[in-house]
Design a binder for these strands. Structure first.
Length: 551
RNA sequence: UGGGCUAUCGCCAAGCGGUAAGGCACGGGGUUUUGAUCUCCGCAUACCCAGGUUCGAAUCCUGGUAGCCCAGCCA
């Protein structure tokens, strides 16, 4: 279970702390995470999950998972499964799992209660008419001719609605509030609609389904939720939330509190847009490592702890804000820097023959898995006459301050010897295909005598290295706010994925397990792709690069 | 121009009448067999603007300005 150490507070903690002090809700804290099962969870949901479960943990309360499944047209069991999996992966345990549909019968009874009070009525206006009658932001709406239908008639009509005696959309149950309210949500909002759609859980039991505004507050009350945390766009619904509970005199009165939703630079989070990226093949599925979905982040190699850390760092406020990508990246770097084992992988191999190293010799070097953490153990790395280094780590015409290998220069092979480049071998058309070097046998684990060697580069033994495919991912969009474009697809980054199929990784990586994470020294953090990597065909995804203060 | 909400460093964010925390980013020094990590230092006389109250205001009052949200039988 996750324990929370909070660095700075936020307004929701203030409210909850005060409520506990006042013994409101008998000092209890019960929250809920209420996703609609109509899509995959994304990083924005992670913020809400961390908040709701986090408050419950911090205040020794509880948090329910509640599927808000009142619109069967868009929802499915598959989405429920993925949502549960993602929450569990993030490290949270719900106290109870509920569905709004569990309450359909009670909701129906509550609706009848409202009708009996004279606070709801069955309306025969069409959707278009209701829109016209609603008025505008600056003009009051006008009352429906059905508004003063008798309670008895409303009761029998509503019962008939449930019995399936009317076609879809023929009637709607509405709250009777105030058609002149400056808050449009209070202008007799719809409570129930007729919709003959098979529900994933209740099957064909119902042909009328309750609306969000009616369902959510009552569901909260039924579960004894104390603090109903939701995003800012529901703020304007709060008077309705409170109205319903007040009229119904529910035994508990949950308090709705709104916070600003997460906006992350270089990403898009709307379901429609995410679906478009998948359907039009800009990415390879909902769990593509470039997607801001939890599944995508997981496949990219993000850890649950790093995402929780991110959610804690960005804070909770009511202010619209944009979080820079660097914050998320910093969180995963910090985690992986501490915990990922180091390894060597050559992405763009360049062959080196060490001429003074016996060609039939082979050494097994014992190398630390983490330079600062000996407790993470060691691994064995073979060294031999022919090795592979990164193309970039040799320069025929080096830029200023270049400290890797140059002709006639020396460089340290990480965890091995210092070598000197004696000769460049080129093809007829001038391409460098090989380097002839010599090594200083007296530099294994010790500094070379009489000179300083600044550069350190990674390498693998050609004969022992394992083939791997490495996928280099970059941000999916070329501008910070893709939503600001009329067509966000025009700002998709064409270079967001670079697939390298001829990489060579050190032998120890041959038995890496699915999803295992590593730091490939000097190049970044990578994880074994959970879907495509096979024993005979390793695939690594780049989670994030190392910080680079040089280029 | 109806109503609701918001405004503190490039990006986040504490602060709740006693004289601007922290993180990310950025700049610079040190350590280093990863140009990584680690470490040290620097980074808002100032809190959207203008008045006012107060010994004292980012915090209270008044008046502005800007941004976001609401007219689904979506959530």
């Amino acid at each position: 279970m996750i324990s929370e150490t909070s660095s700075s507070s936020n307004f929701i903690r203030h409210i909850i702390s005060q409520d506990i002090k006042d013994n409101k809700h008998n000092g209890k804290v019960i929250t809920r995470f209420p996703p609609e099962p109509n899509g995959y969870l994304h990083i924005g949901h992670a913020k809400s999950i961390c908040l709701n479960f986090g408050m419950a943990i911090e205040y020794k309360g509880s948090c329910n998972l509640r599927f808000d499944d009142t619109n069967p047209e868009k929802e499915s069991i598959e989405f429920m499964h993925s949502i549960e999996q993602d929450i569990a992966w993030l490290g949270f345990n719900w106290s109870y799992k509920y569905h709004s549909s569990d309450y359909f019968e009670q909701l129906f009874e509550y609706a009848i209660e409202l009708i009996k009070q004279g606070n709801a009525y069955v309306d025969s206006l069409s959707a278009e008419q209701i829109r016209e009658y609603r008025g505008t932001l600056t003009e009051a709406g006008k009352e429906s001719p059905d508004r003063n239908r008798s309670i008895e008639e409303n009761l029998s009509l509503f019962a008939a609605m449930r019995q399936g005696e009317f076609t879809d959309g023929h009637y709607v149950l509405r709250a009777k509030i105030d058609m002149a309210s400056p808050n449009i949500n209070m202008r007799d909002p719809a409570l129930y609609r007729i919709k003959r759609v098979h529900h994933q859980r209740t099957g064909d039991d119902w042909c009328i389904y309750p609306m969000y505004d009616f369902t959510h507050c009552i569901s909260d009350a039924i579960e004894g939720i104390t603090h109903s945390l939701c995003t800012l766009e529901f703020e304007i619904h709060r008077p309705l939330y409170d109205w319903v509970l007040e009229k119904l005199q529910t035994t508990t009165q949950p308090q709705q509190i709104e916070f600003a939703r997460l906006q992350l630079e270089y990403t898009v989070v709307s379901k429609r847009k995410l679906a478009q990226l998948v359907n039009e093949n800009f990415v390879n599925g909902w769990d593509d490592p470039r997607m801001p979905t939890i599944a995508g982040l997981r496949r990219a190699g993000y850890t649950p702890a790093s995402i929780r850390d991110f959610c804690e760092r960005i804070g909770i406020t009511k202010k619209d804000s944009w979080i820079e990508m660097g914050v998320l990246e910093n969180c995963i770097r910090e985690d992986l820097n501490d915990n990922a084992h180091r390894a060597m992988a050559v992405l763009h191999p360049l062959r080196i023959v060490i001429e003074n190293y016996p060609n039939d010799q082979e050494e097994i070097l014992e190398v630390s898995n983490h330079p600062q953490k000996p407790e993470l153990g060691t691994r064995k790395i073979p060294f031999s006459q022919v090795i592979l280094i990164e193309k970039d780590d040799f320069a025929e015409n080096p830029p200023a301050k270049y400290k890797r290998l140059v002709e006639g220069g020396e460089v340290r092979l990480r965890s091995a010897y210092v070598i000197k480049c004696n000769k460049i071998i080129k093809t007829e058309d001038g391409k460098i295909i090989e380097l002839r070097c010599s090594y200083d046998a007296n530099t294994l684990g010790k500094k070379p005598e009489g000179r300083k060697v600044k550069g350190v580069i990674h390498w693998v033994s050609e004969h022992h290295a394992v083939n791997a495919e490495i996928r280099l991912y970059d941000r999916l969009f070329t501008i910070a706010n893709p939503e600001s474009k009329d067509d966000f697809l025009t700002v998709v980054n064409p270079d967001s994925l670079q697939t390298l199929t001829h990489c060579k990784v050190e032998a120890s990586l041959g038995n890496a397990k699915a999803s295992q994470r590593f730091q490939f020294e000097r190049t970044g953090y990578f994880c074994v792709d959970a879907v495509d990597s096979k024993a005979d065909k390793l695939v690594f995804n780049r989670t994030v690069t190392l910080r680079d203060t040089w280029s």
